[in-house]
Structures are given as structure tokens and as C-alpha cells.
Design a protein around this nucleic acid. Sequence first.
DNA 1: TCATTGCTATCAAGCGTTTGACATTAGACA
DNA 2: TGTCTAATGTCAAACGCTTGATAGCAATGA
Lengths: 174, 174
Amino acid sequence: MDDPVEKKASSDAALDRVLWALRRAEMAMQALKEQRLRPLGLAPAHYSLMLSVRVDPGLTGAELARRLGVTPQAVASLVGKLEKRGHLRRRAHPRHRHIQELYLTESGVEELAAADAEIASLEHQVVQTLGATDARQLKKLLHHVADAMQATSAAAESGGTTRQPASHGDCTQS
Amino acid sequence: MDDPVEKKASSDAALDRVLWALRRAEMAMQALKEQRLRPLGLAPAHYSLMLSVRVDPGLTGAELARRLGVTPQAVASLVGKLEKRGHLRRRAHPRHRHIQELYLTESGVEELAAADAEIASLEHQVVQTLGATDARQLKKLLHHVADAMQATSAAAESGGTTRQPASHGDCTQS
DNA sequence: TCATTGCTATCAAGCGTTTGACATTAGACA
DNA sequence: TGTCTAATGTCAAACGCTTGATAGCAATGA
């Protein structure tokens, strides 16, 4: 661990890839998100879930699971916790009474706003680091990559790859 | 995507952030990695661990944990499995006999090469999608962000990378 | 009309990781 | 020299998520 001889790291091709840079950046960002959200008692997963519900109120658990890239059980667990805290509310679907729609409560909106302020602060920091032009460029490139990779993933195994949304939101709107 | 009423998604500021693009791209990439590595019987975590050991042979478990952003126990679990398969070897440190250094075996090198070929294929696909120039640009921007965020994270919590208990960890140098 | 198909929600079990605590060991300092 | 600090490795328990399987409800087609 105190090797005077520099024979490594930069010489390995695997560390000079876009994939590695992407993973590195995302890990650092995730760590920072967790750090900022901890004082609020919210995990990143909680934030993502509440954000999705704010964007599309009345979302069902299954649809939510597809968007977040996790299983319905994981969503149920999170929803249960958030409901117990009073941030989220489950309500029966008007037509399909077996289905439950999800809504944010007042305290949920409040908590989400606080969390979102932290995340926005992080975003601001990133933009400031890169500059507005480069930040916009980075965002564009990332979306380009994400789109291409999602298409590839769906094409490779038509149906479910890892846990891929077959995107059939029929209950998402009523 | 047949919603007659477009009242959402693109109107929310939270979905128009670099952070969201980053997370999206990384999720898609991770799913694809897992998909490609599954036939080899390797999880992405296994690949990352073996790669780190290849880059720096003789790495200790604790140091590995810091680099991978997980706890030493998680590393121990992975190492145990990889050792049982014969891909990894633990050896006592010459000076500190309580510490164990990690090395790849022949079959480990072989397996890693096969996995690395898959990842390289993915990298190639990304570069082809973006073009060489944009790919290089993306990589540069990502590293820039990662460096800045790691610095921020270290500054906020004088110690490690948030994830691991910074109780003993700061010698991230090798 | 009835049966089939598809999706949702939920329970039970298993695996992997984190948190917390403890034994061991080398280096630093009095 | 002896003690104290720092860092590694490991054990035990808790938490979270995934896989697999089951029940209920609605829309489609014969």
C-alpha cells in the first residue's frame, strides 16, 4: 500500500472507459445525495419514490416499480414506511377497487420540497463546476446514452431484461 | 405514451437535471452489464472486485472496500465466494501477518478476461453511439464531476466517502 | 353467457449488504 | 520497556431487496 513503483492504475485500459467514468460519477453523486438527505431522515429511494408520485399523482405500485427499476415488493415496503410517517396515502382505484392509487399528503409535499431543495443545491453545484454550457452538453450526452442503452436492453431480451418496464401503462390514467 | 393530456413529466424541473440524466444512464448501463455478465456466472460486483485486484495485485480487503464504496464485510463475502471458485487467492502479508493480500489465480485472470471482453463490447457500443469525439468529451466531463463531488464529499465529512464508517479510513492512497 | 388472459397486490423464503461490536496486531510515544 | 492508538479482519443481528408462488379483479373473445 506504499508502493513507490507506479506500475498500475493509469496503465489499465479498463479504467480509461466511459463506463468507468460513468460509474465513478454516479457513485460519488449517490454518496452525496445520501449525505444531504440523511438529516431529513430520507433515503434516496424514498426521495425518488415521492418524486415520481408528485410528477404523476395516482400512480399504482406496479407502475411505480417499473419506473424505479425495482420490484413491486420493494415499492410496497417503501410505501408502507412512507404511509406510516404520514407522507403518503393509498386510495382505492375508482374503477378497479383492487388497485391502489398513491398520493402525497400535505406533510409529504412539504418533506419532498425540503429534499428537493437539497438535490437542487447539488445540481447547482454540478452546473457551477462544469459551467452552463458543458453541463447542458453532459446532460444531453447522458440522455443519448441512456436512450440507446435502454433500447439495446429491451431488444436483447424482448420482455423483461433485468426488471424492465414493458411500458403498458393502462391504469396510469383514469 | 398515448396520454391525450400532457400535464406532467416534462413540466417538472426535477426531471430536467444533470443528476437525473446521470442516474438514468447509470441504471441502464448497470442493467446491461448485469445482462452481459450473467452467462458467465459473474455479478457486476464480482467483476469490479476482480478488476481492482488485477489493477493492484496484493490489495487488502479493507482497501478494496474503500475503493468499491462498500463495507469490508461485503468484500469479505465476495472474496469468500471467489476464493471458493478458485478465482482469487488470499495470502498473508509478509510484514503484517494479520492482514491478507489478495491475488488473482490463473482461472481468475481467465474469467476476468472473458468478463472484460463483454464490458469492452459495451464500451464499444457506447462509443459507436456517441461518436469518438463526444464519447471522449463525455468521459472528461464525468471525471470532472466525479473529482469535484468526491472532493466535496470528503470536505463535508472529514474522512471517507460517506458510505463507509470513516472511523478508521483515510489512507485511500496505495 | 362463460372461460381465458393479463395485471395487480401480497405472502413466504432466500440472499446480500449494512450496522454494531470485538479480537488481533503493528507502530508511536512516554 | 510498556502502554496506547490505529487499522485490519471477523462474528452476530438487522435491514432491504429479489425470487417464487398465490389470490383477486377486470377486459377480451368464443
